[in-house]
Simulated scan of single mutants.
Amino acid sequence: MEKQEEEVQQQQQQQQQQQQPDKNNKETITWDVAEYGGYLFDKKLKAHNPLNHQMPLQYHHSQSTPHIPSSLSTSSTTSIKKPSSSLSDDESGGSSSSTPHSSNTPRKQFSFDDHCALILANQKLPKKLVDYFWDKCSVRICADGGANRLYSLGTKINQSSRWIPDYIKGDLDSLHEGVSDFFSKKGSSIVLDSSQDTSDLQKCFELIIDLEKGSGIKYRKIFILGGLGGSFSHEFANVNTLFDHPGRKIILASKDNLAWLLSSTYNHNIICRSETKCSLIPLSSKASQVTTSGLKWNLVKQSLNFGELISTSNVSLDNKVCVETSNPLIFIVDINP
């Protein structure tokens, strides 16, 4: 009798275990270093292959950039300077419509299911990365002084009208008046948000959320050029933004590095080429268990923590790196070694 009871209990335990979800059975997210412009600066790769192993971001034509919701204009902390309707087509860069636009050519955007956005921060902007992402994002936003950087980049090559952002947003304490007037006449919307409780980058994300509400579009992939480098405090503020929006793919980019957040909610596959230098940084908290494959120095249920071990200057051995983590990690790629 006791043996039968034990067998019944074992069967019940097995059934309960089968009914419980597998905690390790996480959805896998794929990240692509080449897609994010990771090898644009690789001189050796250029010499080896004229195609540069750079997978072009696919895009298609669309009608226009989404209008900014009218609710923003009534905000106590936000005001919008719209382009003048009296401008000629030549002065405004196209038709006299109030919809922001940057050229007479049809707007291009990602052919992925979710649209992509480009934010330009107030740091040095590599021309190669600006060129690479510009026509491939469905909306382009300058974070305050990022407009000065974009204008300077255009005038440096005697093409000041080459890149016209759809929006410029921030407290506008860094935006030069001449730059503001120039872009406004060319069709950019200037959005003032005087709040000192959020950074200019956070203000740009608030704008993206408002654009989503007004259009039904979801910008799950956002590229931030100038998001790394420069002021160390600003760099930390930019990295903190990754944790504010864990449901989106947000890529911080500079001429030296790419960085993004590996959430503990998912497993992660990073598509890359061999000998790509990378690091895994437990910035927000201790990562008690990290397991990787595809690296020269793999981790097996390894704890990563500041003051203890962190994984820096690791190297990929093949074209894919897999990461499982119990806590969020910042994944950093050296793109200009």
Results as ranks from 00 to 15, higher is better:
Leu175Tyr: 00
Tyr151Leu: 14
Val315Lys: 11
Leu211Tyr: 00
Lys82Leu: 13
Leu207Arg: 04
Ser70Met: 11
Leu329Ala: 10
Gly229Trp: 12
Thr78Gly: 08
Ile208Glu: 00
Lys301Asp: 10
Asn298Gln: 07
Pro21Arg: 02
Leu175Pro: 00
His115Ile: 10
Arg273Tyr: 07
Asn49His: 15
Ser288Ile: 14
Ser279His: 07
His67Ile: 06
Ser233Lys: 00
Asp173Ser: 05
Gln202Cys: 01
His101Gly: 05
Gln54Thr: 11
Asn158Pro: 06
Asn52Arg: 12
Glu35Cys: 13
Gln9Glu: 15
Lys169Asp: 04
Asn158Leu: 08
Glu27Trp: 09
Ser92Lys: 12
Asn257Ser: 12
Leu309Met: 05
Thr292Phe: 09
Gln13Asp: 12
Phe236Arg: 04
Val139Asn: 00
Leu242Met: 08
Gln109His: 10
Gly187Ile: 07
Gln123Leu: 13
Leu207Asp: 02
Ser96Thr: 11
Cys142His: 04
Pro21Val: 00
Asp173Thr: 04
Glu27Leu: 09
Trp134Val: 03
Leu317His: 04
Ser180His: 01
Gln20Pro: 03
Gln19Met: 11
Leu207Met: 01
Ser95Ala: 14
Trp260Cys: 14
Leu45Val: 14
Tyr132Asp: 05
Ala117Lys: 01
Asp244Phe: 15
Leu242Ala: 00
Phe306Gln: 03
Thr241Pro: 00
Glu5Asp: 09
Lys23Thr: 06
Gly94Phe: 08
Thr292Gly: 12
Val33Arg: 02
Glu6Asn: 15
Gln11Asn: 13
Ser96Ala: 11
Asp131His: 13
Pro69Thr: 14
Ile332Asn: 14
Asn148Gln: 07
His61Leu: 09
Asn336Tyr: 10
Ile209Met: 10
Gly227Pro: 15
Ser84Gln: 07
Gly154Arg: 06
Leu258Asp: 13
Cys116Trp: 07
Leu283Pro: 13
His234Asn: 09
Ile332Gly: 14
Ala259Asn: 03
Leu125Asn: 06
Ser215Leu: 07
Asn267Cys: 06
Ser188Tyr: 01
Val139His: 01
Val290Asn: 09
Val239Ile: 15
Asp135Asn: 11
Arg149Gly: 12
Ser138Lys: 00
Ser161Met: 07
Cys137Pro: 00
Glu5Cys: 11
Asp144Lys: 08
Asp42Trp: 13
Lys185Val: 01
Ala259Trp: 00
Pro100Lys: 01
Arg273Ala: 09
Asn319Thr: 15
Arg149Thr: 12
Asn24Phe: 12
Gly216Leu: 02
Lys81Leu: 13
His60Ala: 08
Glu5Phe: 12
Gly154Gln: 07
His53Trp: 13
Tyr36Thr: 13
Leu304Met: 11
Lys203Ser: 00
Val333Ala: 08
Val333Ser: 02
Gln202Leu: 03
His115Arg: 10
Gln11Thr: 10
Asn327Glu: 15
Glu275Leu: 14
Lys186Arg: 04
Leu252Glu: 05
Ser184Val: 08
Lys136Phe: 03
Pro56Thr: 11
Asp22Arg: 14
Asp334Cys: 09
Leu57Ser: 01
Ser64Lys: 13
Ser84Gly: 02
Pro100Glu: 06
Lys23Pro: 03
Ile209Trp: 09
Gly154Ala: 05
Asn319Arg: 11
Ile141Ser: 00
Tyr59Trp: 06
Pro165Asn: 12
Glu91Cys: 01
Ile330Thr: 02
Cys272Pro: 03
Ser98Asp: 12
Lys136Cys: 05
Asn257Ile: 08
Ser189Ala: 14
Leu192Arg: 15
